[in-house]
């Protein structure tokens, strides 16, 4: 029971990170119908910027953890957004109206470029970083097995919930969110009614990248290490989460992220660590075969 509780806490933390990445996939898919294959690498860039941000903070002598976290959070979101914007502007926008697979192939190219750029600029070895927040709360203890909720896990969950709330407000209540939803429903009509479609799509990428940056920062803080290749697996799992929740649906992305976190952690905890990635991939295949619209998605009607 204690073991189960501990795994549940770990799973929810991991799921929150996946959910934050999945939002980027689902928004981009919703608005322009492409899989942004490079999104996982944007997440990795976010992790690196956070790492460097923390190092700069300690160089500048900012020792108070909450201040450092807030500063680095803003820094990572801002600078990773530039990556999201630039990728869309350079590699995807010129391809609108090209053949169906062109954006995906371009995205694979961007993913390879980002990975190798970071590898060249920062080196291939994993970068360790001492955790910014240490310590934990002991929730429960029985038979010598303690259930711990670490402060970092609390931070991850609180930040995720706060961001999700803010994000939902942004999409549902502001003019930008309204334009975004309008473009998602009918891009041509939205353009006719005066919505700047290009700007809205850029905005979508920027928001997705900002979310991915937060996820990257949380990942870096949680595991204490980041390298140029982390984006690949995390990206695929987050995509699985987006599909599982129903691609195009924002609550679905979060739900899918939590479910993928649960599946992965419990698989690793009760069956085998080696095959935990296989479990996530199998879920992807099974969902796509039996319920391609996901849990909360709307069925997609293909038009000629």
């Amino acid at each position: 029971m204690e073991y189960f509780l501990q795994q549940l806490i770990n799973a929810l933390t991991l799921g929150a990170i996946y959910g934050l990445i999945a939002i980027g996939y689902t928004m981009v898919y919703g608005i322009i119908g492409m899989i942004n294959f490079a999104h996982g690498d944007i997440f990795m860039v976010g992790g690196f910027i956070a790492l460097i941000g923390f190092m700069i903070c300690s160089l500048l002598g900012i020792g108070w953890a909450p201040l450092a976290i807030v500063l680095v959070l803003l820094l990572a979101m801002a600078f990773t957004s530039v990556y999201g914007w630039a990728v869309e502007r350079l590699a995807y926008r010129p391809l609108r109206g090209s053949f169906r697979l062109a954006p995906l192939i371009s995205a694979i190219g961007v993913s390879i470029v980002l990975q190798n750029f970071v590898q060249l600029a920062q080196g291939a070895r994993p970068k360790p970083h001492a955790s910014v927040i240490t310590g934990s709360i002991k929730l429960h203890e029985a038979d010598g097995f303690a259930v711990n909720l670490s402060y970092i896990q609390i931070v991850i969950m609180v930040v995720t919930v706060a961001l999700m709330a803010g994000f939902t407000l942004l999409i549902n209540r502001t003019a930008l969110g309204r334009q975004q939803r309008a473009c998602e429903q009918d891009m041509k009509m939205a353009a006719l009614l005066g919505v700047d479609v290009n700007r809205t799509i850029s905005f979508t990428f920027v928001m997705g990248a900002a979310m991915a940056a937060v996820a990257g920062m949380m990942f870096m803080m949680y595991y204490g290490v980041v390298d140029f290749f982390v984006g690949f697996l995390a990206g695929i799992k987050a995509f699985t989460a987006a599909v599982l929740g129903g691609i195009g649906s924002l609550p679905g992305a979060m739900l899918g992220g939590l479910l993928i976190g649960l599946i992965e952690v419990f698989w690793a905890g009760y069956f085998s660590t080696e095959y935990k990635d296989v479990a996530a991939f199998s879920v992807l295949v099974l969902v796509l075969i039996f319920r391609p619209t996901g849990l909360l998605g709307k069925p997609e009607i293909e038009k000629v």
Partner: peptide, 28 residues
């Protein structure tokens, strides 16, 4: 057989996943 009913970009991701599964199985 199961995945070819999918749309093009889904197919791409599923084949990617399959490639990774094969590699993980070979490793483990």
């Amino acid at each position: 057989f199961p995945v070819l009913r999918l749309r093009g970009d889904y197919l791409a991701i599923v084949t990617l996943g399959f490639g990774e599964i094969v590699k993980i199985v070979l490793q483990n």
